[in-house]
Amino acid sequence: MQHFGFILASYLSTALILGVLALWLILDHKKQKAALQALEARGVRRRSNAPAKPATTSHDSEQVTK
């Protein structure tokens, strides 16, 4: 096939760029998930995820989720 090298280089470079992009997105997702889980493990939670507390306790859970 004439100019086979140019065609192959086009498709390979496209696959490489898309692959790097997909890998970056996957790693970024894992990083954010891990950071979120670490925060929640330390008791820092969003309002919707915060455990229910009796009304007489401090306002800590409110502050965390604002």
Partner: peptide, 12 residues
């Protein structure tokens, strides 16, 4: 998720 992490870190 990144913005949630940022918000929670600021709150912490």
């Amino acid at each position: 998720l990144r913005r949630r992490v940022r918000t929670l870190r600021l709150l912490e």
